[in-house]
């Protein structure tokens, strides 16, 4: 899951040793406490055009940068689910230089699969249906990783959720002349995700790092990715690592994130002030809360 950190001219082993020294003292490179989340900032672009339905730029204060665009076209529904629409997710990392391109490609495919399966667990694809068995909306989500700094699954999911939530499917015309009414997409529950690092301190137990960055992900002994719903139910739970972790610790980590999920969900759905300034005083169709005039 993790893309290796960009250490510049510093050798990776020395960089990891440096991070280890911080973690032994209960410190992190960016000065955060162990249980603090990085605050996401999401810019929305509602200009549209060229078939684009939504576009978001996800950043946080330590360098993660993701661009998400959503396009919509008409297409036939899947033959096994004729009453559903279609959703495709593609992830690209064009600026990532690596000697092991195969591992990077597998990690990006895994992120695409994670985002798609989590989105369809929270949004009813039957909302994209137009004519049963004949026509449906095909949403094409394209994620471009401009800078990766850990927590790739969570950042990708948040960017897509911010783009798709309350997105307007415009009033359109099918090729046979039928008119399709506009509608807004709704999530029945808003997912929030976090990546939790498991750091083993010798024989004195484990320590959890909330919302790891790339440097921490290269030194921790295990990684959890937890996705919670509105009522703090688990949507996705992915754990990997070098050691077995007790189930009590795993459920404790889930409950610890549940305490912070409401604030994170509010940050993801917060309307973008910069986009409002760019668009003047016009109401943005992708904003969940319309801006007040005057």
């Amino acid at each position: 899951m993790s893309l290796p950190p960009a250490t510049g001219a510093v050798e990776l082993a020395s960089f990891q040793q440096h991070v280890h020294q911080f973690l032994v003292q209960n410190k992190r490179l960016d000065g955060r406490p162990l249980d603090a989340l990085r605050e996401p900032h999401i810019l929305r672009d509602s200009k549209g055009g060229d078939g684009l339905l939504a576009s978001t730029l996800y950043t946080d204060n330590t360098g993660m940068c993701l661009n998400c665009t959503v396009s919509g076209v008409f297409g036939p529904p899947p033959s096994d689910q004729p009453d559903e629409g279609r959703l495709t997710v593609d992830v690209a990392a064009p600026f990532f230089q690596s000697h092991s391109t195969d591992q990077v490609a597998a990690a990006l495919r895994e992120v695409a699969r994670f985002v798609r399966s989590t989105i369809i667990s929270c949004m009813d694809l039957t909302e994209l249906n137009i004519i049963n068995g004949e026509a449906c909306w095909v949403l094409q989500v394209e994620l471009v990783i401009l800078n990766a700094d850990g927590g790739l699954r969570a950042a990708a999911l948040h960017a897509v959720v911010a783009a798709i939530h309350n997105m307007l499917l415009p009033r359109s015309r099918l090729p046979n002349g039928d008119e399709v009414e506009s509608r807004r997409l709704r999530f029945h529950t808003i997912p929030v995700a976090v990546t939790i690092g498991v750091y083993k301190l010798g024989a004195s137990g484990v320590r959890f790092l909330m919302d790891t960055n790339a440097a921490e992900e290269s030194v921790v002994d295990g990684l959890l990715t937890v996705v919670l719903s509105d009522e703090n139910g688990i949507i996705t739970f992915v754990q990997s690592g070098s050691y077995s972790i007790s189930s009590l610790l795993l459920t404790g980590a889930v409950n610890e994130f549940a305490l912070r999920s409401a604030a994170l969900r509010a940050a993801i759905l917060k309307p973008s002030v910069a986009a409002a300034k760019i668009n003047g005083s016009k109401n943005s169709v992708t904003d969940p809360h319309p801006l007040k005039e005057g």
Binding site: L125, T126, E231, I234, I235, Q239, S240, S247
Partner: peptide, 20 residues
């Protein structure tokens, strides 16, 4: 009950019996 790896995924929302 120590777990080395886990993978839990909720089924799609369009299924009839989804619950938290």
């Amino acid at each position: 009950e120590a777990v080395l790896a886990s993978r839990v995924q909720a089924r799609p929302r369009s299924s009839a019996y989804s619950r938290p």
